[in-house]
Design a protein around this nucleic acid. Structure first.
Length: 420
RNA sequence: GGGGAGGUGGCUGAGUGGUCGAAAGCACCCGCCUGCUAAGCGGGUAGGGGGUGUAAAGCUCCCUCGAGGGUUCGAAUCCCUCCCUUCCCGCCA
């Protein structure tokens, strides 16, 4: 969230940023409630201060008239405080609904069409025959099954079977190995259900509850991304500066209701209620966050390059960026079968937006007051869609698929999926 | 799931109604002392918020001893609910 102080001082700046992001921000209500809150609080504290002084006096004098007066003061200060707290609760809820600002380098725009290609690595593969889709190939190879998944779970679920499941697992292991051994991340096995506090910390709540799955009757949510447990790992902590930046990576399933995506991407292994992802999260300082964000993006790109997949690095425009992000890049991998680029990674820097929500701070130096950390995350990569890109890019005329060399050691030396 | 114990500052840990945001120790920081180090001596070191300062500093007040509520003029301390930790039993991948 944004500091209340900033909204007080520069409401127009916040309004403007929200507008360009295509979001709404209840700034006027916030300003009104802010004044109300402080008025009540001030009154409550004034009474309380006098009360505290007189109470000490009573301890000595045991004067009954004073006791009566104190009793009455206690009632008044409590009532005032309750009033202040009620207003503050409303205020806090609204604050959680104010979108983040954005970095000056973010292109201003409204839709996907206004995003900017920053890098274009490799080129569209020349197959020399008509490209088939991953779901067509997957089904005929017997490594993907959507029909049975629909029966077992419902639409937007899938089975990976045999070498398909092996491919997914090998990809996960390959990515984790690269990130931990070469990029300096610490592997984490996080909780895959989290509470509302964590969901609020990373800004899935309160605005986007409809996008996630909640466990019935309990304060537990299925993680929509391991960004949630990883970023919240140090929630409510004051970290030592010399520990930063923290770099975590995790391989987890992700669960999303896809509530707003009815009718979109219904075919194939693209938009599922459950997919898996290797995630990277960094916790750092204001001074280094933009640089660490670029590096994290490069870590994701490295995976695509090693796999030999053509991709584009897109700078998201203000309107396509999202509520919480300060700056965001997407990595889109080319899929010749479906004939379009699929988002296989999304890397974002949040500044202190998440840190304020999660109350995550660090101490710059001994004795210095704590400051909010900056958080960064990105997929490195989304496994399901990477599977798609691999199948479509490395398909062969006979419907089998060449395994990228870097994955072969993880697949028992397998060179061709569906080969014999 | 049943029963017991417990949650206090960076850590250990005292504190059962006011003199307690909190003893003592450790750790850390700043001085002094010492040829250096260690020891010793003195001082300092929680977080959040309001008011007042252009801002920082400062001054001042309020809140916080797992969370929330209650009793009381007054709560770390008494009562209730919840959460978490831990031990024993049961169950279990």
């Amino acid at each position: 969230m944004l500091p209340l102080e900033l909204i007080r001082r520069e409401p127009d700046r916040v309004r403007h940023a929200a507008r360009l992001k295509g979001e709404t921000a209840p700034i006027d209500e916030i300003l009104t409630l802010d004044e109300e809150w402080r008025a009540h609080l001030h009154k409550a504290e004034t009474i309380k201060a006098e009360q505290n002084t007189l109470s000490k006096e009573f301890a000595k004098t045991r004067d009954e008239a004073l006791k009566e007066r104190l009793r009455e003061m206690a009632d008044r200060s409590k009532a005032e405080l309750a009033e202040a707290e009620a207003v503050k609760r409303k205020l806090d809820d609204l604050l959680l609904r104010v979108p983040n600002l954005f970095h000056e380098s973010v292109p201003v725009g409204e839709t996907e069409a206004d995003n900017v290609v920053l890098r274009d690595w490799g080129s569209k593969v020349e197959l020399g025959f008509a490209a088939r889709t991953h779901y067509d190939l997957g089904e005929s190879l017997g490594i993907m099954d959507f029909e049975r998944a629909a029966r077992v779970a419902g639409s937007r679920f899938a089975f990976l079977i045999g070498q398909g499941a092996l491919l997914e697992r090998s990809l996960a292991q390959f990515m984790l190995d690269v990130h931990t051994r070469e990029h300096g991340y610490t592997e984490v096995w996080p909780p895959m259900l989290v509470n509302s506090g964590s969901m609020t910390g990373t800004a899935q709540l309160p605005k986007f509850a409809a996008d996630a799955f909640k466990v019935e009757g309990q304060d537990l949510w299925l993680v929509p991304t391991s960004e949630v447990p990883l970023t919240n790992l140090h929630r409510e902590e004051i970290l030592d500066a010399d520990r930063l930046p923290l770099k975590y990576t995790a391989y987890t399933p992700c669960f999303r209701s896809e509530a707003g995506a009815a009718g979109k991407d219904t075919r194939g292994f693209i938009r599922l209620h459950q997919f898996s992802k290797v995630e990277m999260v960094k916790v750092t300082t204001a001074e280094t966050s933009m640089e660490e964000f670029e590096k994290l993006t490069a870590d994701a790109e490295d995976i695509l390059q090693r796999l030999g997949l053509h991709y584009q690095l897109m700078a998201m425009c203000t309107g396509d960026m999202g509520f919480a992000q300060y700056k965001k890049y997407d990595l889109n991998a080319w899929c010749p079968g479906i004939g379009r680029y699929l988002e296989v990674s999304s890397c974002s820097v949040f500044n202190d937006f998440q840190a304020m929500r999660a109350n995550m701070r660090y101490r710059p130096a001994r004795g210095a007051p704590p400051r909010f950390v900056h958080t960064i995350n990105g997929s490195g990569l989304a496994l399901t869609r990477t599977v798609d890109a691999i199948i479509e890019t490395f398909q062969r005329a006979d419907g089998t698929v060449t395994v990228p060399e870097v994955l072969r050691p993880y697949m028992g030396g397998l060179e061709i999926i569906g080969g014999r």
